[in-house]
């Protein structure tokens, strides 16, 4: 397999590569698709952005060690590991939260205040800090703040609910943007692909189909390597 073909395989995945390689034979002069296959380090920062990232990474934590353990305890309650998949702790969500509050300071005060509220509530009910409670005790508080109170009957719990919503949001985002979380979600993209429509079984399930008239306009992936030609009126001659 020459380099051009190997690039195609990487680009399209081996199952699809045959189509493109097959059609390419009628255009033997084409140069390689100049796709960049090297995986550089970093994520493409400008010098200013790199400096910003380094400054934040090297700055002391906003939260104390006690606050960070309470955050970790909450992350673990919100998305615990189960038999099939790791949880927020495995996905290092507490580290993400420790970073993001320095990067987006708007989160700092609500979380700090919320943790104080949580410890206050724990003291009131069990005379201990939240992290020192046993699981049943922790959940008895969490169950009171993890659900909305549409009638707003208990106003004293409302700050806890607002706080829990924020921590839950950050935990969800931290988890589902991690490698573990993306795999758990099943996201299939961010790779070279050849989109050729909704899979038939999905169309069937939704009772949908492509209209012939619409499909006739769409790209024929078998001829994508052929250089486009039109007649004078703009009709594509080689789709």
């Amino acid at each position: 397999m020459d380099r051009r073909e190997s690039i195609k395989n990487i680009l399209l995945g081996s199952a699809l590569a045959g189509i493109a390689i097959g059609s390419q034979s009628c255009e033997p002069d084409l140069e390689e698709t100049p796709i960049n296959l090297e995986k550089p380090k970093g994520y493409g920062r400008t010098p200013f952005e790199r400096e910003h990232d380094e400054k934040i990474a090297n700055s002391p934590d906003f939260f104390s060690a006690d606050e960070l353990s309470a955050i970790a305890a909450l992350c673990d309650i919100i998305l615990p590991a189960n038999d099939e998949v790791g949880g927020a702790i495995e996905a290092k969500v507490p580290d993400f939260i420790a970073f993001i509050v320095k990067d987006l300071p708007m989160h700092q005060l609500p979380i700090q205040g919320g943790l104080m509220w949580l410890n206050g509530e724990s003291q009131k009910r069990f005379e201990k800090a939240f992290v020192a409670l046993d699981t049943a005790q922790q959940l008895s508080i969490i169950d009171d703040i993890a659900y909305p109170d549409p009638k707003k009957e208990s106003t004293t719990l409302e700050p806890g609910r607002v706080f829990f919503t924020r921590i839950r949001n950050l935990t969800l985002t931290g988890f589902y943007t991690s490698k573990i979380g993306i795999a758990d979600l099943g996201y299939q993209g961010n790779r070279a692909n050849m989109w050729d429509g909704v899979p038939q079984d999905v169309l069937d399930k939704h009772g949908l189909s492509y209209e012939a008239e619409w499909l006739a306009k769409c790209v024929n992936q078998e001829k994508r390597e052929e250089i486009a030609r039109w007649d004078d009126k703009g009709n594509l001659l080689n789709n």
């Binding site: 680009l11 100049p34 961010n190 790779r191 692909n193 001829k223 994508r224 052929e226 250089i227 789709n239």
Partner: peptide, 14 residues
């Protein structure tokens, strides 16, 4: 979605 010349690549649907 289809080649227009030899210099540029084709969409790989990312």
């Amino acid at each position: 979605t289809k080649r227009i010349n030899k210099d540029r690549g084709i969409c790989f649907y990312c």
